[in-house]
Deep mutational scan, measured.
Amino acid sequence: SLSVDNKKFWATVESSEHSFEVPIYAETLDEALELAEWQYVPAGFEVTRVRPCVAP
Score class of each variant (00 low, 15 high):
D5R: 15
A32I: 02
P56E: 09
C53M: 06
N6A: 14
E34V: 12
F20H: 04
V41Q: 08
H18W: 13
F9N: 00
E27H: 14
K8H: 09
E21M: 08
S3A: 10
G44T: 00
E17A: 08
E37M: 14
C53L: 04
L35R: 09
N6G: 10
S19V: 11
S19T: 10
V41K: 13
A55S: 11
T48C: 03
S15N: 14
D5E: 12
P23R: 06
A11D: 00
A36C: 06
L29S: 05
Y25G: 02
S15D: 09
P42L: 08
P42A: 12
F9Y: 08
G44D: 03
D30F: 09
V47M: 01
V13F: 05
A26P: 01
V13P: 01
A11P: 00
K8I: 14
A55G: 11
E21S: 06
T48Q: 04
C53R: 03
Y40K: 03
E21I: 09
W10T: 03
V47F: 02
S19M: 07
R51M: 06
F45I: 01
T48V: 13
G44Y: 02
E46L: 12
S1R: 08
V47W: 04
T48A: 04
V54T: 12
N6Q: 13
P52C: 05
E17N: 11
G44L: 02
V4W: 08
V22K: 01
E14H: 10
T12S: 05
V50Q: 00
S3P: 09
H18I: 13
Y25W: 14
S16G: 13
T28Y: 03
A43D: 08
F9H: 01
K8L: 15
P23Y: 11
V22E: 00
V50M: 06
C53G: 06
E31V: 05
T12L: 13
R51A: 05
E34T: 12
E17H: 14
A11E: 00
S16R: 12
F9S: 00
T12Q: 05
L33V: 09
I24Y: 03
P52K: 06
P56I: 09
A32V: 02
D5K: 15
L2I: 12
E14V: 14
E21F: 06
A36R: 02
E34L: 14
L35C: 06
S15K: 10
E27N: 13
E37D: 04
W10M: 08
V13C: 05
V22G: 01
F20Y: 07
V50F: 03
D30R: 14
P52G: 07
P42D: 06
V47N: 02
A32W: 03
V50Y: 03
R49L: 12
V4Y: 11
F45Y: 13
E14D: 05
Y25M: 05
A55M: 12
E46V: 15
W38E: 13
S3H: 12
L2V: 12
V50K: 00
Q39W: 14
V22Q: 02
R51I: 08
Y25S: 03
S19A: 07
L29M: 09
P56M: 11
V13E: 00
V13M: 04
L29F: 05
A26S: 03
V47Q: 01
Y25P: 02
V41M: 07
F20Q: 03
K7C: 15
C53I: 04
S1C: 15
R49K: 13
L35H: 05
V47I: 08
E37C: 10
D5Y: 13
S19G: 03
E17R: 11
R49I: 07
G44Q: 02
C53K: 02
A55C: 13
E17W: 14
T12F: 07
L35V: 07
Q39I: 15
E46M: 13
A11T: 02
E27Q: 14
L29I: 10
S19C: 08
P56C: 08
N6K: 15
N6W: 12
F9C: 15
F20L: 04
S15Y: 06
P23C: 15
T48P: 03
K7D: 03
D30V: 09
Y40D: 03
A43T: 04
S16I: 08
S19H: 07
Q39M: 15
A11I: 12
E27M: 14
Y25Q: 04
V50G: 02
V54I: 13
V22I: 07
Y25A: 03
E27C: 07
K8D: 01
T12E: 02
V54S: 12
W38P: 02
V41S: 10
G44N: 03
S19Y: 07
F20S: 02
E31C: 06
I24W: 02
E31W: 04
R51G: 05
E14C: 07
A43Y: 14
V54D: 09
P23E: 13
E31D: 06
V22M: 04
A26R: 02
R49D: 08
D5V: 15
L2C: 15
F20K: 03
L35K: 13
R49T: 07
E21R: 06
V50S: 01
L35I: 12
A32Y: 02
Y40P: 03
K7P: 09
L29K: 04
V22W: 04
E46F: 11
P52Y: 13
V41H: 11
V41F: 06
Y40N: 04
V47D: 02
S19E: 05
A32T: 00
W38G: 11
Y25K: 03
R49P: 02
F20C: 06
T12N: 04
E27D: 10
E21A: 05
N6M: 15
A55N: 10
L35E: 04
A32R: 01
Q39S: 07
W10P: 00
E31R: 13
A55E: 11
A11W: 03
P56V: 10
R51Y: 09
V13H: 01
T48S: 05
P52H: 07
V47E: 01
V54A: 11
W10K: 04
L33M: 10
W10F: 05
P23T: 09
T48I: 13
L2K: 11
S16P: 12
R51H: 05
K7I: 10
C53V: 07
D5M: 14
S19L: 06
